[in-house]
Structure formats: structure tokens, C-alpha cells
């Protein structure tokens, strides 16, 4: 574990806590894409299967359990909780996220490290996570004024993978033959998708004005 990876995990944890705070306390999911939340639940479900087959550390296991629990809880709140679901703007959250799942799965069948059930699912989860934020970014462009909590949620979610990139660079230079092309490229694509959002987020923060993404 290095400081970059810890910062990344804490940023990821914080982003989810922000979203849970928003949904649980003000019982609102306005501006949040259910499709992105469903994609993330699928990402964690296909990536963290190894909590049943192996043990790496208490930290690793606890974080995986939290990510699994929180992602499915958020999806449940947005689909079935009768107060929260009313604030979900269904007609704006129209990104066809099913069109992301199949290509990622096919790509995982073609490009992977080992052709085993767990490895292909794990690779699928990496590709899917890279694009999972797309429905949320599209929704942010449509909902004119983004509320602060949602903006911060997306920012820390993007920041987590950016820290991971620093972590991979650090590990590349400090560990023998440490390389993970598939993980690295997926992580770079994922972070690149946030570039535009980061620009407008920092700009709104510096001008202390509301976050607005151009349509």
C-alpha cells in the first residue's frame, strides 16, 4: 500500500459516503444517474467475487464489502424507496447503458490476462468501470444547475482513479516487473472521461459560482 493508493481508496470511499449522505438524509437523488449506479453495482459484483475465494487483508475485504453493500443499497434506494425514487429524473437519465455492458464483455473475452471465469469477469469489470460514469456525465449536462453534493460526488469519484494512476506509476518504479497494461489503460480512459468535468468543476470552485456543464 502506498500513499497514492490510500488517497485513491479514501477518495472513492468519500465519494460514496457523500452520495449515501445525500440520499439518506435529504431523501433526494436529484441529478444522480441510476444507470451509473447500476453499472457500478455490476462492476463491484464482477470484480469482488474473490472475497469468497481468497484473502488479501482485512482492509481489502472490508472495503470490498462496503463497496458492494453501498452500490446495491444506492440502487435499491433509487429504484424502490418511495420518497427517494420520486426525485429521480427518469426522463433525463436516458443513456442506453446496456450498450456499454455487451461491448465491455466481448472485449473482456478477447483481451484479458488469463482465460478463466474469474479473470474474464474481473477484466470486464475494469472495462465497464472505465465507461460507467458516462450516463452520470450526460445527466449532469442536462440538469442545468448541479447541486453541490452531486458535483462533489462526481469529483471525488474521478479523483480516486487519478490517484490510482499515480499509484501505478509509483509501483512501476518501485517494484520489480510490476505492470498491468489492461488496468492502466482502462484507468487512463476512465480518468480522461472526467477531464472536461474537472475543468468546469475547478472553474466553478474558483469563481465560487454554481457548477454548470455546457450542454
Amino acid at each position: 500500500m502506498n500513499i497514492f493508493r490510500l488517497a485513491g481508496d479514501m477518495s472513492h470511499l468519500f465519494s460514496i459516503l457523500l452520495l449515501l449522505l445525500k440520499i439518506h438524509t435529504i431523501k433526494s437523488c436529484a441529478g444522480v444517474s441510476l444507470k451509473t449506479q447500476e453499472l457500478y453495482a455490476l462492476v463491484f459484483a464482477t470484480r469482488y467475487l474473490d472475497i469468497f475465494t481468497g484473502y488479501i487483508s482485512l482492509y481489502n475485504t472490508l472495503m470490498k464489502m462496503f463497496f458492494l453493500w453501498s452500490s446495491f443499497t444506492i440502487v435499491w434506494y433509487m429504484r424502490y424507496h418511495n420518497v427517494v425514487r420520486r426525485s429521480y429524473d427518469k426522463d433525463q437519465d436516458t443513456f442506453r447503458h446496456y450498450f456499454l455492458i455487451l461491448p465491455c464483455f466481448i472485449l473482456a473475452l478477447l483481451v484479458h490476462e488469463k482465460f478463466t471465469f474469474l479473470e474474464v469477469l474481473w477484466t470486464f469489470s475494469l472495462y465497464l468501470e472505465a465507461v460507467a460514469i458516462l450516463p452520470q456525465l450526460v445527466l449532469l449536462q442536462r440538469t442545468r444547475n448541479v447541486d453541490n453534493l452531486t458535483g462533489h460526488y462526481v469529483f471525488f469519484l474521478g479523483a480516486y482513479r487519478s490517484f490510482y494512476i499515480l499509484n501505478w506509476i509509483y509501483r512501476y518504479f518501485t517494484e520489480q516487473n510490476y505492470y498491468k497494461w489492461i488496468t492502466w489503460i482502462s484507468g487512463l480512459v476512465q480518468t480522461a472521461l472526467y477531464a472536461d468535468f474537472f475543468y468546469y468543476y475547478v472553474k466553478s470552485w474558483r469563481n465560487s459560482e454554481r457548477l454548470q456543464l455546457p450542454a
Binding site: 493508493r5 474473490d50 488479501i56 487483508s57 474481473w122 518501485t174 516487473n177 498491468k180
Partner: peptide, 10 residues
Amino acid sequence: EVSHEAKDEL
């Protein structure tokens, strides 16, 4: 450090 194989990252 953990070997290249193990998936020690989240």
C-alpha cells in the same frame, strides 16, 4: 511486495 499476479488493489 505482493507479486504481480495477486489482485491486491481494489
